[in-house]
Simulated scan of single mutants.
Amino acid sequence: MNIKHWQKIVIKVGSALIAPEKAGCSSQYLRSIADFIKQCRGLGIQVVLVSSGSIAAGSHLFNRGTASNDEANIVVKKAMAAAGQAEMMATWDELFDFPSAQLLLTHADLRNRVRYESIRETITTLLAHDILPIINENDAVTTDKLKVGDNDNLSAMVATAAHADALIICSDIDGLYEENPHLNSDAKLVSDVYKIDQDIYAMAGGATSAVGTGGMKTKIQAAEKAVSHGIDTYIVNGFQAQSFQHLLANRNPGTHFYSHKTPMLDGVHWMRHTTRAQGELIVSDQYDIKDNDSSDLLQADDLLSVNGDFASGDIVMLRKDNGDKLAKVKTNYSSCLLNFVADSDNQDISEQFDKTQSPILSTQYIALMES
């Protein structure tokens, strides 16, 4: 690694660093991160900060006894996020001597291509004016259907949108271990990861922090998203100031996930790693999307069945009848119409549909799945 080659980085900071005692924000662990950001900016490196912690920061302002059921708990957590977000931004502002800006996102913003491009433009413009973007999920308004769920994966999506060179994920341990270091003191740190496979995922346990929502698994998921876009990813111990000193000295303080030499194309990466399938189109086991040219990518006769409820323009999964995933695709038709076509036993209807209608799939938005 050579930090001097970095032009733009994304740093992800979790709730345990923001509000370690759930008693409001604390700058105890944030000062070393803020100093690192300042030094990076001094080296001419643009920095984007993805910061969790709004719920943890605001929780001390609420009497949890008022939440008597799960639904009420969700409502109270949204209120905690609204109150805590202001405190969190104020805490960061106190640590910087330059301006910052707040961006609150939901997954709906990221999976819509127009809004995704708008996010990229906003980040780029802020950085061009030496303003630090501070990004968090909009926990005050988001729903289960619209949320990313953890800021590890959000940071990877942001790093991709920003075309970052490196993603630094701050954890409460030094990096990825072969075993859980909290249970085995002899567990070995994995310093370098060149390929993320099932063996790497097998090393990941659950969340180790009582405050945050992400564990090591979500950090590996984030790394997988980032490295496929050509972004080197580091998991480091955010509680240790020396982690950032090592980075500034071109030393790896934790686990380095190496970026792919041939990054995935931007549009394909967005389809694969940012969008969510709203339903499924089921085709025969003999069908292979790679064998079809763009003019007849999916014919009515190829369609066996439709799963889910989706609208025209939604992203869906193209899947074989045996369960194999073929691709994420954008459909030009709703599930209602495609159900009618798939369920029809009349060959004339299928032929007429193919002749008179637009293609079932939008050929501009296709991401083949890895076998």
Score class of each variant (00 low, 15 high):
E370Y: 12
E178M: 03
L127A: 10
D232H: 03
F98Q: 11
V306E: 11
L183C: 03
Y258D: 07
A164V: 00
I220M: 04
N237R: 06
H182W: 03
N307S: 12
S52V: 01
L326S: 14
T331M: 01
E370K: 15
S350K: 09
T274A: 03
H229K: 08
L247C: 11
R251H: 14
D324E: 12
S295M: 04
S26L: 01
V341W: 11
I18S: 00
I131H: 05
K77F: 04
D144G: 13
I200D: 09
D348T: 12
Y116H: 13
L265S: 15
L297T: 15
D197S: 07
V190A: 07
H260L: 00
K147R: 14
Y234K: 06
N180I: 00
A300W: 05
I55P: 04
D266F: 13
N180W: 05
T262Y: 04
N151S: 00
S68K: 15
Y287L: 10
R272W: 08
G53S: 06
H182M: 06
D345A: 10
A223P: 03
K77P: 03
Y194C: 02
T275Q: 05
S371A: 13
S259Y: 00
S312D: 10
L361N: 15
M317Q: 14
H229Y: 10
L265K: 14
F239Y: 02
G14W: 11
H182E: 05
I3G: 02
D296W: 15
R251V: 09
D165N: 12
K219T: 01
A128K: 14
A164D: 02
N69L: 10
A162E: 10
G206S: 11
A187D: 09
R120K: 14
I9Q: 04
A82Y: 02
L361I: 15
V76W: 02
G254W: 05
D199Q: 12
K22V: 01
D70V: 15
Q299K: 13
Y201W: 08
I235Q: 07
S26E: 02
E351G: 09
G24A: 02
I55K: 01
I231H: 04
T122Y: 02
A101P: 11
A72I: 04
G267Y: 14
L326F: 05
D309H: 14
T255G: 03
H246G: 01
I282N: 10
R120P: 06
A342T: 11
A164W: 01
I360K: 12
A311S: 15
Q221I: 06
I289R: 07
T143E: 06
S32P: 10
H269T: 02
N250Y: 03
S54E: 07
M203R: 11
I45Y: 06
Q352V: 06
L303M: 05
K12F: 05
A249W: 07
S350N: 08
S68I: 15
A82M: 10
D186I: 00
G279M: 05
N250Q: 03
S15Y: 05
G308L: 06
M264W: 00
M317C: 10
I119C: 12
N2V: 02
A311T: 11
C170A: 14
R41L: 07
L167R: 01
G84T: 05
I131C: 12
D266C: 11
L326A: 12
I45C: 13
S344K: 02
S295E: 11
D150H: 02
K219P: 01
D285M: 08
Y194G: 10
I366D: 13
K290I: 08
Q198C: 08
S32H: 15
E87N: 08
L247V: 04
